[in-house]
Design a protein around this nucleic acid. Sequence first.
DNA 1: TTGTGATAGTTGCAAACGTAACTATCAAGC
DNA 2: GCTTGATAGTTACGTTTGCAACTATCACAA
Lengths: 170, 170
Amino acid sequence: MKLESFLPYRLNRAAAIASRQFSAIYRNDFNLTVPEWRTLATLGQFGAATATEIGEHSAMHKTKVSRAVAALQRRRWLVRHTNEQDRRIEHLSLSAAGRSAYAKLAPKMLAFEDAMIRKLDPEDQEALAKGLVALERALGIDRKTSLLSQRSENETPGEDDLRDRRRRVA
Amino acid sequence: MKLESFLPYRLNRAAAIASRQFSAIYRNDFNLTVPEWRTLATLGQFGAATATEIGEHSAMHKTKVSRAVAALQRRRWLVRHTNEQDRRIEHLSLSAAGRSAYAKLAPKMLAFEDAMIRKLDPEDQEALAKGLVALERALGIDRKTSLLSQRSENETPGEDDLRDRRRRVA
DNA sequence: TTGTGATAGTTGCAAACGTAACTATCAAGC
DNA sequence: GCTTGATAGTTACGTTTGCAACTATCACAA
């Protein structure tokens, strides 16, 4: 058994190291936890989502999402709108303050990501992108995200300034 | 900001989902936690290591390793040998019972990994392997693991039965 | 209309976690 | 032979986590 080649081991290690580096940014700037940042980023991108959707999209436990949402709401970065057709559902979206924080944070995160990706040869970037997409498909990730991905078609315009990135992995 | 393409987000999601599936195996069979399994696997492969080495190799916090080692020792799966040249250092290795558990578990884990990898096209397997190696290099992982990787050259033979896998990612 | 099962989200509680502080040990310089 | 600083590993403590149980709501059927 070679740990050096054992896929889940390597994935977790790489994810942990990368996450530690990235989280330093939003922890320093805004004292955000990882689940809070993920929730902020999801809402920043998709405009609105339910807690369940956020959890499925980011593979976070529903209690984790629930607490992150509560924390963001306490900061007044997030608002809830109960669906009147089905009162169990709460549509979440960012307040002006939340969007402002997201607008400050997102470019920093993307710049840091670019710096990380640029450490790879272009052909390695391609390979990572291709391999990761295939792995996500094998893990059944594309299906879980379909709901939100579709909705992202008709997001509210006006905050698109962050979305025109030049060169992305996948 | 496209979460769909944001590297640390995707890495963490894939790692979390994969880890959840894999951990079900050793949790069911032996009631092992993730850190305990990682420690067991590291010692099972390398024969012996210090707690610091295990932590660096698997990107686990030293307190996490310390607790996992203590738990494995409580099961009598692990023994400590204080280095007499430097009495701060403890060389850890598996007991017969520990090796036995590892021998039962490792083939299951590898079989499950094979099933997961086989969901990918061969060219996607290659791409993932290539991309992951490059990413690890960019994250500085290869350096951290060098100590243990070198030692793995002269491991004790006799437990090599698990190491002759045919087709591996990386 | 009442009951049954399902779903969205929250919370109590015990387990797991990371930070910081600790012990024990070592090497190096004075 | 003492200090000083560094390292290996453990532990106390407050925080975060996940499981299970909970509330509230809905759809559907007897």
